[in-house]
Design a protein around this nucleic acid. Structure first.
Lengths: 150, 150
DNA sequence: TTATATGCAAATCTTTTGCAAGGAT
DNA sequence: ATCCTTGCAAAAGATTTGCATATAA
Protein backbone atom coordinates (compact mmCIF):
# COMPACT_ATOMS: atom_id res chain seq x y z
CA UNK A 1 0.00 0.00 0.00
CA UNK A 2 1.96 2.91 -1.32
CA UNK A 3 1.19 6.54 -0.63
CA UNK A 4 -0.05 6.65 -4.16
CA UNK A 5 -2.57 3.91 -3.40
CA UNK A 6 -3.66 5.62 -0.18
CA UNK A 7 -4.27 8.87 -1.98
CA UNK A 8 -6.21 7.20 -4.76
CA UNK A 9 -8.44 5.76 -2.07
CA UNK A 10 -8.77 9.14 -0.30
CA UNK A 11 -9.69 10.87 -3.51
CA UNK A 12 -12.22 8.23 -4.47
CA UNK A 13 -13.76 8.32 -0.99
CA UNK A 14 -14.21 12.07 -1.35
CA UNK A 15 -15.76 11.73 -4.78
CA UNK A 16 -12.78 13.35 -6.45
CA UNK A 17 -11.17 12.08 -9.62
CA UNK A 18 -7.68 10.66 -9.79
CA UNK A 19 -5.89 12.70 -12.41
CA UNK A 20 -2.40 12.73 -13.82
CA UNK A 21 -1.99 16.27 -12.49
CA UNK A 22 -2.98 15.47 -8.93
CA UNK A 23 -0.63 12.51 -8.77
CA UNK A 24 2.14 14.67 -10.20
CA UNK A 25 1.56 17.37 -7.58
CA UNK A 26 1.64 14.75 -4.86
CA UNK A 27 4.93 13.38 -6.11
CA UNK A 28 6.40 16.86 -6.44
CA UNK A 29 5.33 17.63 -2.89
CA UNK A 30 7.36 14.66 -1.69
CA UNK A 31 10.30 15.45 -3.95
CA UNK A 32 10.35 19.15 -3.11
CA UNK A 33 11.76 18.46 0.32
CA UNK A 34 11.37 20.68 3.32
CA UNK A 35 7.88 22.20 3.73
CA UNK A 36 7.65 23.74 0.24
CA UNK A 37 5.42 26.62 -0.83
CA UNK A 38 2.91 26.20 -3.65
CA UNK A 39 5.26 28.11 -5.92
CA UNK A 40 8.07 25.69 -5.14
CA UNK A 41 5.88 22.66 -5.79
CA UNK A 42 4.82 24.29 -9.05
CA UNK A 43 8.44 24.58 -10.19
CA UNK A 44 9.22 21.00 -9.24
CA UNK A 45 6.15 19.61 -10.96
CA UNK A 46 6.95 21.66 -14.03
CA UNK A 47 10.11 19.63 -14.60
CA UNK A 48 8.00 16.61 -15.49
CA UNK A 49 4.80 18.40 -16.59
CA UNK A 50 5.84 21.60 -18.38
CA UNK A 51 2.30 22.59 -19.32
CA UNK A 52 0.66 22.32 -15.93
CA UNK A 53 -0.75 25.58 -14.68
CA UNK A 54 -0.29 27.26 -11.32
CA UNK A 55 -4.03 27.14 -10.71
CA UNK A 56 -3.99 23.36 -10.91
CA UNK A 57 -1.14 23.13 -8.44
CA UNK A 58 -2.84 25.49 -6.00
CA UNK A 59 -6.10 23.58 -6.34
CA UNK A 60 -4.46 20.20 -5.84
CA UNK A 61 -2.54 21.32 -2.76
CA UNK A 62 -5.64 22.84 -1.24
CA UNK A 63 -7.52 19.62 -1.95
CA UNK A 64 -4.81 17.51 -0.32
CA UNK A 65 -4.80 19.75 2.72
CA UNK A 66 -8.59 19.54 3.04
CA UNK A 67 -8.40 15.74 2.84
CA UNK A 68 -5.55 15.73 5.36
CA UNK A 69 -3.32 14.05 2.79
CA UNK A 70 -0.91 16.94 3.37
CA UNK A 71 -0.42 19.34 6.23
CA UNK A 72 -0.44 23.06 5.66
CA UNK A 73 0.48 26.20 7.54
CA UNK A 74 1.32 29.81 6.88
CA UNK A 75 4.91 30.87 7.30
CA UNK A 76 5.69 34.19 8.95
CA UNK A 77 5.82 35.81 5.50
CA UNK A 78 2.20 34.85 4.84
CA UNK A 79 2.99 32.23 2.22
CA UNK A 80 1.27 28.85 2.59
CA UNK A 81 3.56 25.87 3.15
CA UNK A 82 2.71 22.20 2.66
CA UNK A 83 4.01 19.12 4.39
CA UNK A 84 3.50 15.60 3.05
CA UNK A 85 4.64 13.99 6.31
CA UNK A 86 1.52 12.96 8.23
CA UNK A 87 3.40 11.33 11.11
CA UNK A 88 2.48 12.97 14.41
CA UNK A 89 5.26 15.40 15.26
CA UNK A 90 6.02 18.89 16.47
CA UNK A 91 7.12 21.63 14.05
CA UNK A 92 9.15 24.48 15.40
CA UNK A 93 8.80 27.33 12.94
CA UNK A 94 11.21 30.24 12.90
CA UNK A 95 9.20 33.45 12.66
CA UNK A 96 12.16 35.27 11.15
CA UNK A 97 13.68 33.01 8.48
CA UNK A 98 10.93 30.45 8.08
CA UNK A 99 13.12 27.45 8.86
CA UNK A 100 11.18 24.54 10.32
CA UNK A 101 12.57 21.92 12.67
CA UNK A 102 10.67 18.67 13.09
CA UNK A 103 10.75 17.28 16.60
CA UNK A 104 9.43 14.00 17.94
CA UNK A 105 8.73 14.42 21.63
CA UNK A 106 5.94 12.28 22.97
CA UNK A 107 5.86 13.95 26.38
CA UNK A 108 5.45 17.39 24.81
CA UNK A 109 2.83 16.01 22.46
CA UNK A 110 0.87 14.43 25.27
CA UNK A 111 0.93 17.50 27.49
CA UNK A 112 0.12 19.79 24.59
CA UNK A 113 -2.86 17.72 23.50
CA UNK A 114 -4.17 17.49 27.03
CA UNK A 115 -3.92 21.26 27.52
CA UNK A 116 -5.53 21.88 24.15
CA UNK A 117 -8.37 19.60 25.08
CA UNK A 118 -8.99 21.58 28.24
CA UNK A 119 -9.02 24.79 26.19
CA UNK A 120 -11.57 23.35 23.78
CA UNK A 121 -9.12 22.71 20.99
CA UNK A 122 -8.26 19.66 18.94
CA UNK A 123 -4.72 19.48 17.62
CA UNK A 124 -3.96 17.92 14.27
CA UNK A 125 -1.28 15.36 13.62
CA UNK A 126 1.21 18.13 13.37
CA UNK A 127 1.61 20.51 16.27
CA UNK A 128 3.10 23.82 15.25
CA UNK A 129 5.13 26.03 17.55
CA UNK A 130 6.33 29.42 16.46
CA UNK A 131 9.58 30.81 17.75
CA UNK A 132 12.94 32.03 16.59
CA UNK A 133 15.71 29.68 15.58
CA UNK A 134 18.99 30.16 17.36
CA UNK A 135 20.69 31.67 14.35
CA UNK A 136 18.07 34.38 13.97
CA UNK A 137 17.89 34.92 17.74
CA UNK A 138 21.62 35.58 17.83
CA UNK A 139 21.45 37.87 14.84
CA UNK A 140 18.70 39.82 16.52
CA UNK A 141 20.71 40.13 19.72
CA UNK A 142 23.58 41.63 17.76
CA UNK A 143 21.70 44.03 15.53
CA UNK A 144 18.07 44.10 16.59
CA UNK A 145 17.88 46.50 19.50
CA UNK A 146 19.95 49.15 17.82
CA UNK A 147 17.95 50.82 15.10
CA UNK A 148 14.97 49.97 13.00
CA UNK A 149 16.20 49.91 9.44
CA UNK A 150 13.72 51.67 7.21
CA UNK B 1 4.59 53.74 34.04
CA UNK B 2 1.83 53.39 31.49
CA UNK B 3 2.07 51.40 28.32
CA UNK B 4 2.25 54.71 26.58
CA UNK B 5 5.36 55.62 28.55
CA UNK B 6 6.94 52.25 27.92
CA UNK B 7 6.42 52.56 24.21
CA UNK B 8 7.78 56.09 24.12
CA UNK B 9 10.90 54.71 25.73
CA UNK B 10 11.07 51.77 23.29
CA UNK B 11 10.71 54.06 20.31
CA UNK B 12 13.32 56.47 21.60
CA UNK B 13 15.73 53.62 22.33
CA UNK B 14 15.36 52.46 18.74
CA UNK B 15 15.90 55.96 17.36
CA UNK B 16 12.33 56.19 16.16
CA UNK B 17 10.12 59.22 16.60
CA UNK B 18 7.07 59.34 18.79
CA UNK B 19 4.28 60.52 16.53
CA UNK B 20 0.62 61.15 16.98
CA UNK B 21 -0.08 58.38 14.46
CA UNK B 22 2.01 55.74 16.19
CA UNK B 23 0.40 56.44 19.53
CA UNK B 24 -3.02 56.29 17.88
CA UNK B 25 -2.23 52.93 16.28
CA UNK B 26 -1.05 51.61 19.62
CA UNK B 27 -4.22 52.70 21.33
CA UNK B 28 -6.37 51.27 18.54
CA UNK B 29 -4.51 47.99 18.84
CA UNK B 30 -5.52 47.80 22.51
CA UNK B 31 -9.05 48.95 21.85
CA UNK B 32 -9.59 46.64 18.87
CA UNK B 33 -9.81 43.64 21.16
CA UNK B 34 -9.04 40.11 20.14
CA UNK B 35 -5.93 39.74 17.93
CA UNK B 36 -6.98 42.20 15.23
CA UNK B 37 -5.73 42.35 11.66
CA UNK B 38 -4.08 45.48 10.29
CA UNK B 39 -7.28 46.26 8.44
CA UNK B 40 -9.26 46.10 11.67
CA UNK B 41 -6.80 48.35 13.50
CA UNK B 42 -7.03 50.74 10.58
CA UNK B 43 -10.79 50.98 10.92
CA UNK B 44 -10.61 51.51 14.67
CA UNK B 45 -7.92 54.17 14.38
CA UNK B 46 -9.93 55.89 11.67
CA UNK B 47 -12.66 56.69 14.18
CA UNK B 48 -10.36 59.14 15.94
CA UNK B 49 -8.01 59.94 13.04
CA UNK B 50 -10.08 60.00 9.85
CA UNK B 51 -7.19 61.05 7.62
CA UNK B 52 -4.66 58.44 8.63
CA UNK B 53 -3.58 56.20 5.77
CA UNK B 54 -3.42 52.44 5.63
CA UNK B 55 0.30 52.60 4.91
CA UNK B 56 0.93 54.36 8.19
CA UNK B 57 -1.02 51.75 10.10
CA UNK B 58 0.80 48.89 8.40
CA UNK B 59 4.15 50.56 9.04
CA UNK B 60 3.38 51.27 12.69
CA UNK B 61 2.23 47.73 13.36
CA UNK B 62 5.28 46.27 11.68
CA UNK B 63 7.47 48.60 13.74
CA UNK B 64 5.77 47.56 16.98
CA UNK B 65 6.20 43.90 16.09
CA UNK B 66 9.89 44.40 15.32
CA UNK B 67 10.38 46.15 18.66
CA UNK B 68 8.40 43.40 20.41
CA UNK B 69 5.89 45.99 21.60
CA UNK B 70 3.26 43.82 19.93
CA UNK B 71 3.14 40.18 19.00
CA UNK B 72 2.31 39.12 15.47
CA UNK B 73 1.36 35.96 13.66
CA UNK B 74 -0.32 34.87 10.46
CA UNK B 75 -3.78 33.42 10.69
CA UNK B 76 -4.67 30.42 8.58
CA UNK B 77 -6.06 32.76 5.91
CA UNK B 78 -2.65 34.39 5.50
CA UNK B 79 -3.64 37.68 7.09
CA UNK B 80 -1.30 39.11 9.72
CA UNK B 81 -2.70 39.44 13.23
CA UNK B 82 -1.35 41.58 16.05
CA UNK B 83 -1.50 41.11 19.79
CA UNK B 84 -0.73 43.90 22.28
CA UNK B 85 -0.59 41.48 25.22
CA UNK B 86 3.07 40.77 25.95
CA UNK B 87 2.42 38.60 28.98
CA UNK B 88 3.89 35.11 28.48
CA UNK B 89 1.05 32.84 27.45
CA UNK B 90 0.04 30.17 25.00
CA UNK B 91 -2.17 30.97 22.00
CA UNK B 92 -4.23 28.19 20.52
CA UNK B 93 -5.12 29.21 17.00
CA UNK B 94 -7.95 27.57 15.08
CA UNK B 95 -6.72 26.79 11.59
CA UNK B 96 -10.28 26.83 10.27
CA UNK B 97 -12.05 29.86 11.72
CA UNK B 98 -9.10 31.80 13.08
CA UNK B 99 -10.40 31.96 16.63
CA UNK B 100 -7.60 32.27 19.19
CA UNK B 101 -7.77 31.05 22.78
CA UNK B 102 -5.26 32.40 25.27
CA UNK B 103 -4.07 29.87 27.82
CA UNK B 104 -1.83 30.31 30.83
CA UNK B 105 -0.21 26.98 31.61
CA UNK B 106 3.19 27.21 33.23
CA UNK B 107 3.89 23.50 32.97
CA UNK B 108 3.23 23.50 29.24
CA UNK B 109 5.28 26.63 28.85
CA UNK B 110 8.20 25.17 30.76
CA UNK B 111 8.22 21.89 28.86
CA UNK B 112 7.76 23.63 25.54
CA UNK B 113 10.63 26.02 26.13
CA UNK B 114 12.90 23.22 27.27
CA UNK B 115 12.13 21.15 24.19
CA UNK B 116 12.57 24.16 21.94
CA UNK B 117 15.93 24.84 23.49
CA UNK B 118 17.06 21.30 22.72
CA UNK B 119 15.90 21.76 19.12
CA UNK B 120 17.89 24.98 18.79
CA UNK B 121 14.91 27.27 19.02
CA UNK B 122 14.08 30.23 21.22
CA UNK B 123 10.42 30.82 21.91
CA UNK B 124 9.02 34.31 22.26
CA UNK B 125 6.79 35.49 25.05
CA UNK B 126 3.87 34.10 23.18
CA UNK B 127 3.84 30.45 22.25
CA UNK B 128 1.54 29.68 19.38
CA UNK B 129 -0.13 26.34 18.81
CA UNK B 130 -2.18 25.65 15.74
CA UNK B 131 -5.13 23.33 15.90
CA UNK B 132 -8.85 23.22 15.33
CA UNK B 133 -11.32 24.61 17.82
CA UNK B 134 -14.01 22.21 18.98
CA UNK B 135 -16.74 23.93 17.03
CA UNK B 136 -14.86 23.60 13.73
CA UNK B 137 -13.73 20.07 14.58
CA UNK B 138 -17.33 19.00 15.07
CA UNK B 139 -18.42 20.75 11.88
CA UNK B 140 -15.71 18.92 10.01
CA UNK B 141 -16.76 15.58 11.45
CA UNK B 142 -20.29 16.13 10.21
CA UNK B 143 -19.58 17.44 6.73
CA UNK B 144 -15.89 17.12 6.03
CA UNK B 145 -15.33 13.57 4.86
CA UNK B 146 -18.23 13.58 2.46
CA UNK B 147 -17.42 15.62 -0.58
CA UNK B 148 -15.03 18.39 -1.43
CA UNK B 149 -17.16 21.38 -2.28
CA UNK B 150 -15.86 23.06 -5.43
C1' DT C 1 17.98 72.32 10.74
C1' DT C 2 17.84 67.66 9.33
C1' DA C 3 16.71 63.10 9.33
C1' DT C 4 12.49 60.55 9.92
C1' DA C 5 7.50 59.82 9.17
C1' DT C 6 3.29 60.42 6.58
C1' DG C 7 -0.13 60.19 2.73
C1' DC C 8 -1.16 58.95 -1.65
C1' DA C 9 -1.20 56.07 -5.45
C1' DA C 10 0.93 52.60 -7.89
C1' DA C 11 3.21 48.30 -7.67
C1' DT C 12 3.92 43.63 -5.98
C1' DC C 13 2.87 39.16 -4.72
C1' DT C 14 0.15 35.22 -3.50
C1' DT C 15 -4.01 33.05 -4.14
C1' DT C 16 -8.68 32.69 -6.18
C1' DT C 17 -12.08 32.55 -9.80
C1' DG C 18 -14.98 32.53 -14.37
C1' DC C 19 -15.25 30.13 -18.27
C1' DA C 20 -14.65 27.18 -22.32
C1' DA C 21 -12.38 22.95 -23.53
C1' DG C 22 -10.67 18.40 -22.07
C1' DG C 23 -10.98 14.08 -19.51
C1' DA C 24 -12.28 10.50 -15.86
C1' DT C 25 -15.75 7.30 -14.54
C1' DA D 1 -23.07 10.82 -21.34
C1' DT D 2 -22.21 13.25 -17.32
C1' DC D 3 -19.99 16.02 -14.29
C1' DC D 4 -15.38 16.98 -12.61
C1' DT D 5 -10.85 19.16 -13.88
C1' DT D 6 -7.80 21.83 -16.27
C1' DG D 7 -5.61 25.97 -18.35
C1' DC D 8 -5.78 30.55 -19.19
C1' DA D 9 -6.21 35.10 -18.03
C1' DA D 10 -8.27 38.27 -15.19
C1' DA D 11 -9.61 39.42 -10.48
C1' DA D 12 -9.07 39.84 -5.76
C1' DG D 13 -6.97 40.99 -1.51
C1' DA D 14 -3.14 42.04 1.59
C1' DT D 15 0.96 44.33 2.00
C1' DT D 16 4.81 47.17 0.32
C1' DT D 17 7.04 50.99 -1.89
C1' DG D 18 8.47 55.56 -4.39
C1' DC D 19 8.15 60.08 -3.78
C1' DA D 20 6.94 64.76 -2.42
C1' DT D 21 5.48 66.95 1.72
C1' DA D 22 5.14 67.48 6.67
C1' DT D 23 7.12 67.11 11.22
C1' DA D 24 9.67 65.50 15.61
C1' DA D 25 13.84 66.27 17.84
Amino acid sequence: MSINTDVRRELAAAGCRVTEQRLAVLEALWRAGDHPSAERVYHVVRRSHPTMSRATVYRALELFASLDVAGTFRAADGVARYDPDRTPHVNFECAVCGRVADVMDSRLQALTRRTADRAGFVLGRQIALRGTCRRCAVARQNYGRRKHDG
